[in-house]
Design a protein around this nucleic acid. Sequence first.
DNA 1: TCATTCATTGAAAACGTTTTCTCCTTTGAT
DNA 2: ATCAAAGGAGAAAACGTTTTCAATGAATGA
Lengths: 346, 346
Amino acid sequence: MSKITIVDVARISGVGVSTVSRVINGHVDVSAKTREKVLAVINETGYVPNDSARNLKRTDAKCIGVLIKGITNPFFSPMIDIIESEIDRQNYALVLRHAGPEEDEADVALELENEKRLRGIIFLGGGSEQSKEKLRDLKIPAVFSTIGATILDRDGNAEYSTVSVDDRLEARHITQYLMNLGHKNIAIITEAMGRRSVGHLRLEGYKDAFAIKRQPVNDELVFYVEQNMEHFSIENGYRTTQRILASGKDITAIFCVTDLLAIGAMRAIADAGLRVPEDISVCGFDGMEIGRYSNPRLTTISQPLDQISRETVKLLFDLIESRSSHRHIVFPGELIIGESTMKCLT
Amino acid sequence: MSKITIVDVARISGVGVSTVSRVINGHVDVSAKTREKVLAVINETGYVPNDSARNLKRTDAKCIGVLIKGITNPFFSPMIDIIESEIDRQNYALVLRHAGPEEDEADVALELENEKRLRGIIFLGGGSEQSKEKLRDLKIPAVFSTIGATILDRDGNAEYSTVSVDDRLEARHITQYLMNLGHKNIAIITEAMGRRSVGHLRLEGYKDAFAIKRQPVNDELVFYVEQNMEHFSIENGYRTTQRILASGKDITAIFCVTDLLAIGAMRAIADAGLRVPEDISVCGFDGMEIGRYSNPRLTTISQPLDQISRETVKLLFDLIESRSSHRHIVFPGELIIGESTMKCLT
DNA sequence: TCATTCATTGAAAACGTTTTCTCCTTTGAT
DNA sequence: ATCAAAGGAGAAAACGTTTTCAATGAATGA
């Protein structure tokens, strides 16, 4: 069973290749009789159209790309399902691609665009400063999901669309929640990335909370994860928390900018013989499933991933059909109070 | 910046298209002078070769495909990184594709093979009974990773290669571990899938443990997750455990065939006001990262994902270069004793 | 000097589709 | 009965590459 092409199918069913093509693509102008005959042959021979040849000719492929930076991050998992079904509902095909930690997502995006005939592209994660430049060459609408950092061109106009929560604001809220519980020495675990990274934005929110209270931020309580690995991993939360504990600083709460970090933090605290939340309160950010099942349950900011996902594809289709220009859509996060935080006792 | 093709490049640099092609693909037989000239034009025009056209002609693409069934499952995450780097080390490209819960992985595989010029394919997850049939049409070597269920053709020969632990054996081991702790009424949470599913295999191992002890298996202690969602999710573990607790059966231990299920189980037990492991011991299977950070830490069977991943690509390359025929490689699992299990007190 | 080889190059033939044109039947209306 | 319109189907021209083949000229060896 070597390769069987459209020509073979045409020959066997005794029609022209164009007819076969019409059948495959569900064009109307082919008689029921012929269609059936061709369909039978296709079935029987197990013919599958060659996508490369197809894409080469096609100009109207209804296909949209989803690019995930760090497929390893379970944060994106629930989004994929929704985005997939939403795109499907519009009768578009979806092609999912991932960019490894080393790859520049812009490169992968460009490659994808040129390989497939995409009508639009969705970015999950990524969106770093540098890749933004390259994205200028993108000829199709792009939406960044979950990445709020506004991307502006030189004139201050939005160059891409984004759908997300206001990372900075929400981070402030949860920090304020900790403050309201009486916590003063609140450590934060974040990443040391560019100005537009979620880690940075959430750190800003943390600082905002102090600014509003007219309290100085103690820079010694800002801890950065190690650079050499997946930033927002459980293990990184664990290790960084060990560093916090070893630092001897008098800390009553830790704000982890990610739920995964928080899970690791809680384990590290327990391993040090301390209790969460009695000795140290811990909170996260994201509202991942694991936080609802951890012990203790995690206090966190929940992102409405459902709505974000749905709005992402809606917005993308608006752009594709040019019903709107680039927009930044912001959803409110929700403070989920778990059992990992409590009143400061000291 | 609309589309600029190889023909344009050729015209501008005043050479033939074949020469441009040779430059792009780094063939040797082109003079340094010409090469430089062409390269300059390429750079200047920002020309990017069209991958579809390329794949259409190309026959020797060094590319291997990785197909993940259920990208949503964090179990695969650590494997991807390793597989990726191993493939890279061989100077092959990798294309990652995922099959949703509704899609037949065989269909996606066939589509992928025909779309790209793959030299081999790796399956992560999936491998259901029915898709096996279709896989007959696959013209390239395939390796199932993490899926031990031997796939034999009518003559009893291996039709595909697999790399995995012995699910049945390891499941027996951990069940025996529970028995040795004095547990008698051990419930199991598994999935109701085909004979070759991991859920089924691990259930068999569970039964084996009883058989060896010459004890009957109490079918009422076998619980199946709900069908309508991702089988091995935390939530499913939670819900199924609620059913177990509501059943009023006198249970002292639960064997969850997956760590994720176990995480959910532990939460459900805690929510019912019981303690793990004092009231009910819980163990999982897989050795996922989360189990090492959960509270309590999870007793489980750890799969050597590193070795499995590495061996998977090694085996695939053996097949590609026909250094060997299909094989089934089995790695031993390791019993990780956490704090989620203890002696049966009753 | 002439015949051979070798290194470069270009022309043209694939690759497997989709699409545009054109042509041949029908059909329906006058 | 005649003609226009429409419906159904095939031939052939793209699509943007890679690759084979042949041609060119230069360089080598006798």
